[in-house]
Structure formats: structure tokens, C-alpha cells
Amino acid sequence: MSGLLERIAGKLRSYREPGYYTKLDHKWTMVIDLDKCNGCEACVVACYAENNLPVVGREECEKSRAFSWLRIERYVEGEYPDVKVKFIPVMCQHCMKAPCETGCPVYATYHNQDGLNVQVYNRCVGTFTCATYCTYDVRRFNWFTYKWPKPLEAQLNPDVSVREMGVMEKCTFCIQRIRSAKDTAKDESRPVKDGDIKPACSQSCPTGAIYFGDIQDPESVVAKLAKSPRRYRLLEELNADPSVIYLKRVMGDGTSSHE
């Protein structure tokens, strides 16, 4: 009996060892060109609609219970006529060495074979540890079981479950779209092509600033963009190895947004 328990514990522990997935099936990566981002927040709205996020209202936001999986950070520099405004869309960075994964006592957040940092809602017991460990402050907690007023519940996305009270959640890179693209690819017996998958934020971006794809495929758009000299990642010095790559915004005077 103890031998069996030890084997199960060993198996579970191995998920946390670095390099558990020595070869990933895909490594989904997002590239955000900050030069194109004008801070319109269409991506935020799209994220709300796609992922069944409740709109909690001002009072809850003041208690820092805002519910956006994707937020736009604004940095304003200078006084009025001479202003520089910089926007950075921040969502879950799907770190390859994610700090949140080390904290969860019930293994509700883990890395899957696609290089995604995923959250299993059924397993989550709501200890809030992952949100505390998260470097980017992107994890959101269901403080209540949110209800949608009568006609609005009809617009809920059936591909995404509606979470209940006490569950942590975060950006999934629109895993339901990844799944459906894989499904279609399997029906046509081909591998998933570059451009098959567009997360809701990427689809809704009016300037096309958000690119999504598999960085393991050298021909993909993201793999090419990732080689750009403007490339940087958020808080790279913390060595969490995030999967979201930003391209610096170059301002008129030659300075860049990442300074």
C-alpha cells in the first residue's frame, strides 16, 4: 500500500521537475507588437465575451477583485502637450518555469504537453497561493458565484465552463480554440497549420498587434517575429521564462517603450 502511494506521489512530483516534458507537442507563443497597440481594449472586451468572465462592477474593482484575464497597463510620461503614453497588454504569460505551479497544494495548475500553463477548475480548492506567487498579477479569484442577468446568460460560451465561487482562474490562451483547431486538423489528417488558431484577443485586435502560433515551427509567424531586435519579455530577469514575447514600441525620439 505504501509502495503504491509512494509511486503515485513520485509520479505527481515529477510534474514539477524542470524538463518534465522534454519534448513538447507544441509550444504556443504569443507575440505582441507594442508599436501597433493603441490601447483600445478591444482585446479585453473580446476576452470577457469569449471566456465567460463576469463583469463585477466598480465596487468590486475597488476591492481589487477585478476580473479581467487580460488588462492593458498604461504608462503616461510627461506633461500635457508633450506626453508619451505607453500601453502593455498583460495576460497570463504561460511561464515555462512558472512560479504559480510550484505553490499549488493540489496540483490544480500544471504544465501540459503544449507548453501551456493550465488551471484545472475542478481540482482548485482556492488557497490563493498561485495568485500570491504570480509575478505578473494575472490570476483572478472567484469571490462569489457570479450570475448573469436573464437575457445575458444566453451569450455564454458553451465551450468554456462557468466557474463557481472559490476557484482561481486565468488566461488559457483560448485553449478551447486550440482544441477545436486540433480537432479540425485531425479530421483533415494534417498537423495544425500556422494561423489555424486565433485567440479572441488576437482576433479582435483592430491593428493586428497580437500574433499567436507555435514557436517550435520555424516557419511560423511568431518564430520569425521572436527573432526581432525589438523583442523583450516582461520581467525577464526573474527567469520565469514566459511564453509571451513583446516587441518594443519605438517612440518618435528614438527611445523605446521598454526603458
Partner: peptide, 10 residues
Amino acid sequence: NGHDCWTCHK
């Protein structure tokens, strides 16, 4: 990937 949580859970 039959044992991955997100294969069946959503």
C-alpha cells in the same frame, strides 16, 4: 494525451 486534464475538462 489521454491523461491530460484539459483534453476533457473545459
